[in-house]
Computed example of a mutant assay.
Amino acid sequence: MSTEITKEMWKKIEDEMSDGWVSIVFAYKGYEVGVERVRASESKTCLQVYIDGIIKGEWVSFSGNDGISDKAPAILADVWCKKTKSKYDTKFKTSMTKIWGKRRVTKKYPDLNDKHVFHVPTFSKASVVCRQFKKLEGITLVKSKSSFTGDL
């Protein structure tokens, strides 16, 4: 049974996501969005977002629309974490500007300030997931550890 999420429920969801073991399922635009805590390394965990229970590498593309391929679900940009990385690092930019000057460096390197944009299914903190999910219109809670229905 899916329920509309209130402000109090978001606080409880964030508290639950901060715990050691997390398995929460949301419904959004006809997709099932699952959030689980997984190990990122030997001593670090992160929250991972699954769409309909899976994550596929073919959903990510480095040529085109914000790092998302045509095979990706329509909601991927809404529920995955958006990351950006500069095409050139700061050291390279400053050295080229020092060599060529401000005007000529933009002629030699017109993409000097460009950024690579991509989406990843992992979030570092529960507050980041909740902040992003709160903005989504029509997201509902399907199930969680405590299901919150008796608590409210």
Rank of each mutant, 00 (worst) to 15 (best):
T122G: 05
W21L: 11
L141Y: 07
T3V: 06
K12Y: 04
A126W: 03
D111S: 09
K87H: 00
D52E: 04
T97C: 03
G67C: 08
C46K: 08
L152C: 11
E137H: 14
D89I: 00
V105L: 01
S63P: 02
L47E: 01
K85T: 12
D89L: 01
G67I: 07
Q132C: 05
V22C: 01
K98C: 03
G101V: 02
K87W: 00
K29E: 08
F148L: 10
K12F: 02
G57C: 08
I54A: 12
V33Y: 04
S18N: 15
E16W: 09
K87E: 00
K108R: 13
S127M: 01
S23F: 14
N113M: 07
A74Y: 06
S43F: 15
K125R: 13
D151N: 11
F62Y: 12
T106Y: 10
D114A: 14
S86C: 00
E14C: 11
G34W: 00
K11Q: 15
K135N: 09
I13T: 12
V22N: 06
V22I: 05
Y31P: 08
K56G: 05
E8P: 01
C46Y: 02
I75P: 07
S18G: 13
V60D: 09
A74C: 05
W100H: 13
K91S: 08
V120I: 14
L47Q: 10
E58C: 12
D70A: 14
L152W: 11
Y28W: 02
K56W: 03
V142T: 11
G150Y: 05
L47N: 07
R103N: 12
G150V: 03
G138A: 05
E16H: 05
K7H: 10
S86T: 01
W10A: 03
V129D: 11
L136T: 06
A27P: 00
D111R: 01
A40L: 07
S147V: 07
I13W: 03
V25N: 09
S69G: 11
L76H: 00
Y31L: 12
K56R: 15
C130W: 04
D66W: 07
Q132W: 01
G34E: 12
D151P: 01
K71W: 04
P73I: 10
V38W: 13
E137K: 15
H116A: 06
S86E: 04
V105D: 01
Y31W: 10
E16K: 11
H119M: 07
A74R: 15
E58V: 15
S146Y: 11
K135C: 04
E42N: 14
G30K: 06
Y31A: 13
R103C: 08
Y109Q: 06
M1Y: 09
I75C: 08
E36F: 10
